[in-house]
C-alpha cells in the first residue's frame, strides 16, 4: 500500500488541492438542495462535522509533526461528505464520530491524504454505519427539521431491500429526479448530482472515468438482476437513483489516492466497485452498502490486478511457441 513513500513535492500538493477544491465546488449544489429540503439543521450538521475534522487534523498533524496537511482541503471535504450522507435529523455526535474515525484512524496514521490506503470519508461513514445502523438508515420525510423531531419516511433503497414492488407511476419519477423523497440529505437529488457529474467530467476527466465505471457496473447488475417486478427499466432507474449510489460514484470512488492510473484500469476499478455495491445490496444486511464497496474494492484491487497479471502472463507464455521469445529474451536485455 502506501507506507513510507516520499513522493511529496509542491506540484503534487497543488494538484491534490485542486482536486479537492473541485470536489468542494461540486458539493455546493447538494448542500443547497439539502438546505432547501430540510432547513438550517443541515448546516448545523455540516458545520459541526467540518469543524471536528479540521480540529482533529490540526491536532494530529501537530502530534505527528507534519505541517500543512490542512492545505489540501481533504479534511473539509471529508466533513462535508460525511454530513451529507447522514439523515437530516441525525444526532450530531454521530457526525463527530464519523469524522474522528476518518481523520484519526483512516487518514493521519498513514501520513495524510495521498498516503491513506482507504478513502477517509468512506471509512468514517462505514464506521458510523456499523456503530449505529438504525440511526444512520432511518430517514425523515422531506420537510423542515427542527430539534430533531420528524416523521420518518421510507427511502427508495429500503423499499428495494424489502422487495416492495414499485412502478414508475406509483412513485413519481419527477420527485425522484428532484430529490423530493426520503433519503440521505445530500444524495437524493439526482438533478444536481448530474450537474456535478458534468462539472467533474470537464474538470477531472480521468476521475470521471471511475464514476462512469461505477455507474456502468451498477447499471449492468440492475439490468441483469432486477429487484422490482415492473421490468428492467424501472429496476435500472430505481437502483441507480436510490440510496447514495450516484453520490458515491461522484465523491467516494474518485479518490485519487486509492484509484488506479490508467483509464481502462480506472474504469474496471469503478465497475468492480459498482458490481460489489449491487451484490452487497442484494445480499447484505444494510439497505445501502456503497461505502463498504468502495473500501473493499480499494483493499482488494491490488490483488485483483496481480491475479489478472498472472493470468495474462500465463496465457501469454503458453501461447508462444518459441521459449526464446518469452521472458528469457527480456532478461537478456
Amino acid at each position: 500500500m502506501s507506507f513510507g513513500i516520499n513522493t511529496n513535492n509542491r506540484e503534487e500538493e497543488k494538484l491534490t488541492r485542486r482536486f479537492y477544491s473541485d470536489m468542494l465546488i461540486m458539493l455546493i449544489a447538494p448542500v443547497v438542495m439539502a438546505w432547501y429540503y430540510y432547513g438550517t439543521a443541515v448546516f448545523k450538521t455540516i458545520i459541526v462535522s467540518v469543524l471536528t475534522a479540521v480540529v482533529l487534523e490540526l491536532t494530529a498533524s501537530f502530534l505527528l509533526k507534519e505541517k500543512g496537511t490542512l492545505k489540501d482541503l481533504n479534511a473539509v471535504f471529508t466533513g462535508v461528505v460525511i454530513a451529507l450522507l447522514l439523515p437530516a435529523n441525525v444526532s450530531l455526535w454521530l457526525a463527530v464520530l464519523g469524522c474522528a474515525f476518518a481523520i484519526l484512524i483512516a487518514k493521519m496514521p498513514f501520513g495524510g491524504t495521498r498516503f491513506a490506503p482507504f478513502m477517509p470519508a468512506a471509512a468514517g461513514f462505514a464506521f458510523i454505519c456499523l456503530c449505529r445502523p438504525q440511526a444512520v438508515f432511518l430517514y425523515p420525510t422531506v420537510g423542515i427539521v427542527s430539534n430533531g423531531e420528524a416523521t420518518y419516511g421510507v427511502s427508495l433503497a429500503s423499499m428495494l431491500k424489502l422487495n416492495q414492488s414499485m412502478g414508475l407511476n406509483v412513485i413519481s419519477f419527477f420527485n425522484v429526479f428532484i430529490g423530493n423523497i426520503a433519503g440521505p440529505v445530500g444524495a437524493t437529488c439526482i438533478m444536481v448530482l448530474i450537474g456535478a457529474a458534468v462539472f467533474l467530467a470537464i474538470r477531472q476527466p480521468k476521475s470521471a472515468i471511475n464514476s462512469a465505471g461505477f455507474i456502468a457496473g451498477s447499471a449492468i447488475m440492475a439490468l441483469l438482476f432486477p429487484r422490482v417486478l415492473n421490468g428492467i427499466l424501472a429496476s435500472l432507474v430505481f437502483e441507480l437513483c436510490s440510496g447514495m449510489l450516484i453520490f458515491t460514484a461522484l465523491f467516494l470512488i474518485t479518490d485519487p489516492a486509492t484509484s488506479p492510473k490508467r483509464p481502462q484500469s480506472r474504469f474496471l476499478y469503478g465497475a468492480f466497485a459498482g458490481i460489489l455495491c449491487m451484490v452487497m445490496r442484494y445480499f447484505g444486511i444494510f439497505q445501502e452498502s456503497a461505502c463498504f464497496a468502495v473500501l473493499i474494492s480499494s483493499a482488494v484491487w491490488p490483488l485483483v490486478t496481480a491475479g489478472i497479471k498472472r493470468l495474462v502472463s500465463y496465457f501469454d507464455k503458453k501461447s508462444r511457441a518459441k521459449p526464446k521469445a518469452g521472458r528469457e529474451m527480456i532478461n537478456e536485455r
Binding site: S2, I5, A257, P260, K261, P302, A306, I308
Partner: peptide, 13 residues
C-alpha cells in the same frame, strides 16, 4: 500526480 505513486506500488494492470 499519482502516476509515480501507482507505479511504485504496481497497482495497475
Amino acid at each position: 500526480l499519482f502516476e509515480n505513486f501507482r507505479k511504485k506500488h504496481n497497482l495497475d494492470n
